[in-house]
Amino acid sequence: MSNHPVIKTVVERIRTDVIGGAADTAKEVVAALVSLIKDSQAEDTNAFISEVEKAVVDIMRVMQSLAPPINAMHCVLGAMEEAFNQGSSIPEIKSAVKQAADDFSKSIEGALDKVAQYGAEKIRDGDTVFMYSMSSTVWRILRHAKSKGKSFNVVVTESRPANEGLLTITEMQKYDIPVAVSIDACIGELIPQCDVVFVGADAISSHGFALCKVGTYPSALVAHAHGVPFYIAADTLKFDSSTLLGLPFRVDSIRRHEVLGDQKYSDLVKVVGVLFDETPPHLVTAIITEIGLLNPTACFSVMSQMRHSQKLSALLPAWVKNEL
């Protein structure tokens, strides 16, 4: 265990799930690693590096399957490894890491605004927009379009089991955007009547598959069958570089009580399913990122330009299996 108090704090905050979103988790992880590095008393580079790596393992042990904080750690550790491989001194390594962390934080700040701006261009006056479940990134797009004076309707479904779709209603009403709601089973009727579909994603794989709230894949199939454009709003922080190594997305299962409540059912009835499904690239018109609208099959090019840490890549297979 790392003894530095900022690492202990961030580990505790991740473990108890008190940080809002994945991007915020990424920011906190970067800030904690930067403090650790700044305060390090290590006198030789090997000791210094092993101190940082220990902290990374501590963080990963409690981390859910979220691409943004993993990318944040790739960035910080990658910068450290680069400097180390060039034979830099400890102060040089520290300053290289600080620089990488600053660049990273800066890129997060502007990214979502750009996604909102580019995405809003895809909404025309008078459109009916379908969105699945909730996504703060899609909400930003809709708010941006509204602030540009566009008038449009939003249609959303419940998004069982947790009904996050109902949060979209409240959010739209806050901004005076007309919203209609239905049950998830109605996607086959509703999406063909809409002009465009927007969804958020939890992660994007190197071969262009998007991990989204369960129900997104059938929605994309319906949109595709009816020629309705289907956009995924996701900044490149969501590009999950562990998929480059062939690792699967880590997803949670639907629990028995989420479907059956307290009702008594025979043991012959099992509850199955997971909270996320994967939408293949051929159903997606474009992924809206801060670097522009991408064909999902272009994800590999973007990922290969991102900074990677060899140490972190070596840890990921065990992390995915929950064996770290």
């Binding site: 089991p161 998830d184 639907i254 479907v259 099992k270 199955v272």
Partner: peptide, 11 residues
């Protein structure tokens, strides 16, 4: 029987 939510049809 294996039971899930309607949104799980894709899986």
């Amino acid at each position: 029987v294996e039971l899930s939510v309607d949104a799980s049809i894709g899986k």
